[in-house]
Design a protein around this nucleic acid. Structure first.
Ligand SMILES: [Mn+2]
Ligand SMILES: [Mn+2]
Ligand SMILES: [Zn+2]
Ligand SMILES: [Zn+2]
Lengths: 138, 138
DNA sequence: ACACGCGCAAGACTAAGTCTAACTTTAGAC
DNA sequence: GTCTAAAGTTAGACTTAGTCTTGCGCGTGT
């Protein structure tokens, strides 16, 4: 399950360090789309003395090197996504949680007909409720 | 071209005032998707003494009353959109400017097949270059 | 004249993120 | 094994966007 983070970092041109490994270990093994502060909080459970600046530095480094993607929610929150391939996002209205939607689950057509726009990339952002989440108490 | 802002506000349950009319006048008549600070700057050209808090209050009020929609860009910037109907957005890579894409220009299919997700609304966000914008000097 | 309610203004405050400058730690070189 | 330069880390200052607080001014009704 947990592959060699050290190697992953090196393969992407990032010099490993205890702090970087701790951050990568967490953020590459969650699908929760955590914020930077959430990452800091989680990492501190096992590496209490890591600084805020280092967490941000590491996350930004990983984004620059394509190990991570940044995603901004509708309310302005910035989260990090270990899933760097093309996919869509579904935001749960009730919890705010983000769920990945596989690229092939949706199809966007008529893109080529968009006169004047040269589309490099796109994404569908959906919002709604999880089915079966029929109003359970908080 | 410029309809009676006073009436528009009242029709949406907002008590008009000089400041509110000034803000609405600008923000309802642009397709530029301005930030709050941009709105403040523009409004001050004709109403120099308006406070930052009032600009924010008015924009938020208009959003609450459905006169305006808030939209958050990929870089986290929050902008306001007078186009409150369903539409998609195209972000110009070079200038960062946002262009509205009419709802019917695109079609997203297979939505109903998304098991477990009850979609309330969605939007396609596209990024790329404007065709014909072939590298003119800045 | 008085008082209430509403809206506005100014500035304090907050949260997310970046930057700075000093300090460790590391990787090589010897 | 030492030494040293480069790279990494740190605490805290700073910035930016936005919210909150508090007091003030003004119109309306009595
Ligand atoms: Mn970033
Ligand atoms: Mn807002
Ligand atoms: Zn994702
Ligand atoms: Zn728009």
């Amino acid at each position: 399950m947990k592959i060699d983070i050290d190697t992953v970092l090196r393969e992407h041109g990032i010099q490993p360090s205890a702090q970087r490994v701790a951050v990568a270990q967490y953020v590459l093994n969650t699908t929760a789309h955590p914020t930077a502060e959430k990452v800091a909080a989680e990492v501190r459970k096992t590496f209490p003395m890591i600084s805020r600046a280092t967490v941000y530095n590491t996350l930004n480094l990983m984004v620059e090197h394509g190990l991570l993607r940044e995603f901004v929610l509708d309310d302005g929150t910035t989260v990090f996504d270990a899933n760097v391939g093309s996919h869509h996002h579904f935001v749960d209205d009730e919890t705010g949680r983000i769920h990945d939607i596989p690229w092939d689950s949706l199809k966007v057509s008529k893109l080529e007909a968009l006169e004047g726009f040269e589309v490099r990339e796109y994404q569908v952002v959906l919002r709604g409720r999880l089915r079966g989440t029929s109003r359970r108490r908080s």
